[in-house]
Amino acid sequence: MKLAGLLLLVAGWGIVMSAVALLPSLMGRAGFALAGVAVELLGLALFVNSHLVLSAGKG
């Protein structure tokens, strides 16, 4: 789960970068950039959750 979270963080950033580099209109870029940030937040949530599970396991 930790690795999946990490990969989603990077993938979200990739979406944002691609939107800026490839799309011509501001609205299109903004829409894809927001989608990329949403993917990042999903990755962050997975990452946080994986550490919660690890902490519970140690406790």
Binding site: L9, G12, W13, V20, A30, E40
Partner: peptide, 20 residues
């Protein structure tokens, strides 16, 4: 709007590149 997008790209880079 344009400045929001620029700041958003910077913040996405912090979360998606710097943190990993």
């Amino acid at each position: 709007r344009g400045q929001w997008l620029a700041q958003l790209v910077g913040m996405a880079t912090l979360l998606g590149f710097v943190l990993p």
